[in-house]
């Protein structure tokens, strides 16, 4: 569904991604792990063009997205994103955060959009907060709203950029539970995470990145149970 070919990314002189090849199948949950600065987030952000690709190709459903004539806004509407810092819109109520994009882009009317919004907020367990503002919510609640906001565009896949890294420990679980349910429903997900438990339990594939390369890739059993590469072993030795 998402295919990446020989992806290179430079920030100025610094090469952050040094040739990534990978393919994500529909309904797969791919967890990307690795040390800080390994290029995980940049890799994720290239997939919906939040970062400009220096070289290589990214295909979503066989459409090459890093090409000038591709309508990047249409692609982004199909690929949701959840950020480490939630990035909810503070000047809008929770329900407006969720309904804004479908109304602007899908031209839904307010009644339809709010029905969808309430349905999604119920799904993440926050319909009671629909008319609150983001700053009245805890971090975990905000992140669940952010997931509902991404779902409102009915995306084909969702990218998660360290979704629990900015949360207090006791709130991590509520967000991971929502993500687990999504995975069970068959959502295609790419998750950059430090939650090894989540990667092991929910991931269909686990990708270990280091120094701008994909060092090793496999099922959770392979990566966590029997890692082949020395760097993978060293990293897992430190975090597990």
């Amino acid at each position: 569904m998402i295919k990446i070919e020989n992806l290179h990314k430079y920030f100025g002189q610094l090469e952050v991604l040094k040739g990534i090849d990978y393919e994500i199948q529909e309904k797969q949950v791919v967890c990307v792990i690795g040390p800080s600065g390994s290029g995980k987030s940049t890799f994720l952000r290239c997939i919906n063009m939040l970062e400009e690709v220096t070289d290589g190709a990214i295909y979503i459903k066989n459409v090459k997205i890093n090409e000038p004539k591709t309508n990047i806004n249409a692609i982004r509407a199909e690929v949701g994103m959840v950020f480490q810092q939630f990035n909810l819109f503070p000047h809008m109520t929770v329900i407006d955060n969720v309904t804004m994009a479908p109304m602007q882009i899908r031209k839904m009317n307010r009644t339809e959009a709010e029905a969808l919004g309430h349905e999604l907020l119920k799904k993440v367990g926050l319909d009671s907060k629909a008319y609150n503002y983001p700053e009245q919510l805890s971090g975990g609640q905000q992140q669940r709203v952010a997931i509902a906001r991404a779902l409102a565009m009915k995306p084909k896949a969702i990218l998660f950029d360290e979704p629990t890294s900015a949360l207090d420990p006791e709130m991590v679980k509520e967000v991971l539970d929502v993500m687990k349910n999504l995975a069970a429903e068959g959502m295609t997900m790419i998750v950059v995470t430090h939650e090894m438990g989540f990667a092991r339990e929910v991931g269909d594939r686990v990708v270990f990145m280091d120094g701008g390369y994909i060092v090793e890739e496999g099922t959770p059993e392979e990566i966590f149970g029997n890692p082949q590469n020395e760097r993978t072993k060293a990293f897992l030795g430190k975090v597990l």
Partner: peptide, 18 residues
């Protein structure tokens, strides 16, 4: 305004002007 606000809006498919 934090950069993440623009990124979040664009990631939903909004144009720069929207």
């Amino acid at each position: 305004i934090a950069k993440g606000q623009m990124e979040a809006a664009r990631s939903l498919g909004l144009t720069h002007n929207q």
